[in-house]
């Protein structure tokens, strides 16, 4: 049974990776436009900004003014990526040192709690509720279940079957709904860096030299 489920997880993962790749490639079917305007700024610096300072709460007003949400989001996504790594730890399997397990448990639990907080916020804030479609709720719940099972699994390996089943569902769902942003996010941040970098908007240029 475990072997079948393990294969199921791997198949689901491959399905997810292939479908996400197809989705990205499909974006190119809309055409790639060459840019003709001469850049003012530095694209590389723009991309670096997009992944560093441009995400910081002191730089980004929306993050700074929603600090609890921002912190929840950071924990949530860090925990998700660690939990994605954890599935390999279980499948291969790899024996992690106790300290690594402890760190994972802290992040995984924080991510689960953050996920629940974000879900509650989505459901209780009127405009967030109105903005949401079923996919927004489902994506959160699927990932939260995956996180909590990953966390519990570190204490009770006997739940591997349930962990695998959840992983299969989650990986299969990723390309269909909003979880795909885990993949697109990096793509979009690069595009953000290119757009603002070449225009010299971000990073902010230094003041004009008097000399």
């Amino acid at each position: 049974m475990q072997t079948v489920l393990k294969s199921g997880v791997l198949i689901s993962m491959v399905f997810s990776a292939v479908t996400l790749t197809i989705l990205v490639l499909k974006t190119f079917s809309f055409g790639k436009k060459k840019l003709y305007a001469e850049p003012t700024g530095d694209i590389k610096k723009g991309i670096t900004y997009a992944f560093t300072k441009g995400m910081m709460p002191w730089e980004k007003e929306s993050a700074g003014s929603h600090l609890p949400t921002y912190i929840c989001g950071m924990f949530y996504h860090t925990g998700i990526f660690l939990a994605l790594f954890y599935i390999f730890v279980v499948i291969i399997p790899i024996t992690l040192p106790d300290i690594a397990i402890l760190i994972f448990q802290v992040f995984c639990l924080s991510a689960f709690v953050s996920g629940i907080v974000l879900l509650i916020k989505r459901l209780l804030t009127p405009y967030m509720r109105e903005l949401s479609c079923p996919d927004d709720i489902a994506a959160n719940i699927i990932v939260d279940i995956y996180l909590v099972l990953a966390f519990v699994h570190t204490f009770f390996p006997g739940i591997t079957t349930y962990f695998y089943l959840t992983a299969i569902i989650m990986f299969a769902y990723i390309p269909l709904g909003k979880i795909r942003h885990c993949f697109f996010f990096f793509y979009i941040r690069i595009l953000f860096g290119i757009f603002y970098g070449r225009r010299g908007v971000f990073p902010t240029r230094s003041k004009i030299d008097e000399t």
Binding site: V24, K26, F184, Y187, L191
Partner: peptide, 21 residues
Amino acid sequence: IDHKYAAHLNSCVHCGLCADV
């Protein structure tokens, strides 16, 4: 829509943080 916009159109997570800016 070009490849950039198609990627953008695939990626809104409805976080709502854009509201009060």
